[in-house]
Computed example of a mutant assay.
Amino acid sequence: MRLSGKELQIIANYARGFTTSTIARQLNISEASVKTYARRAFEKLHVHSRAEAVAVCVRNGWI
């Protein structure tokens, strides 16, 4: 399973402590889009939270 560039970017920003609204403003996308990318990443990673997603990505060296 591979995360898209945008999904990985969202998870990386969560790892930096940014909120959904901050990420949306930085990337010039809607908050709903940020949530959709995050949800898709969670599904691909088989996790249920931002913290779990960040942990998996760090453990695998993706971020």
Rank of each mutant, 00 (worst) to 15 (best):
R2H: 13
R2V: 14
R2G: 09
L3D: 06
L3M: 06
L3R: 02
S4H: 07
S4N: 10
G5Q: 13
G5K: 13
K6A: 08
E7Q: 15
E7V: 00
E7K: 00
E7I: 03
L8M: 09
L8Q: 12
L8V: 01
L8P: 04
Q9N: 06
I10K: 04
I10C: 06
I11D: 01
I11R: 02
I11N: 03
A12W: 02
Y14S: 06
Y14G: 04
Y14Q: 06
R16M: 13
R16W: 09
G17C: 11
G17H: 09
G17Q: 10
T19E: 14
T19R: 14
S21Y: 06
S21D: 12
T22I: 10
T22R: 12
T22V: 13
I23G: 02
A24M: 07
A24K: 07
Q26H: 14
Q26N: 15
L27I: 01
L27M: 12
I29L: 12
I29G: 03
S30G: 07
S30H: 00
E31G: 07
E31V: 08
A32K: 14
A32R: 14
S33P: 06
S33C: 10
S33M: 08
V34M: 01
K35Y: 07
T36M: 14
T36Y: 12
T36A: 15
T36R: 15
A38H: 10
R39W: 05
R39N: 13
A41P: 03
A41N: 03
A41T: 01
F42Q: 03
F42S: 02
E43A: 04
E43Y: 02
K44D: 07
K44Y: 10
L45G: 05
V47A: 02
V47Q: 00
V47R: 02
H48R: 12
S49W: 05
S49T: 12
S49P: 12
R50G: 01
R50F: 01
R50H: 04
A51Q: 15
E52C: 03
E52P: 04
A53L: 10
V54Y: 11
V54Q: 14
V54A: 11
V54L: 08
V54W: 07
V54E: 11
V54K: 08
A55Y: 10
A55V: 08
C57Q: 02
V58T: 11
R59P: 00
R59A: 11
N60F: 05
G61S: 01
W62V: 08
I63T: 08
I63L: 15
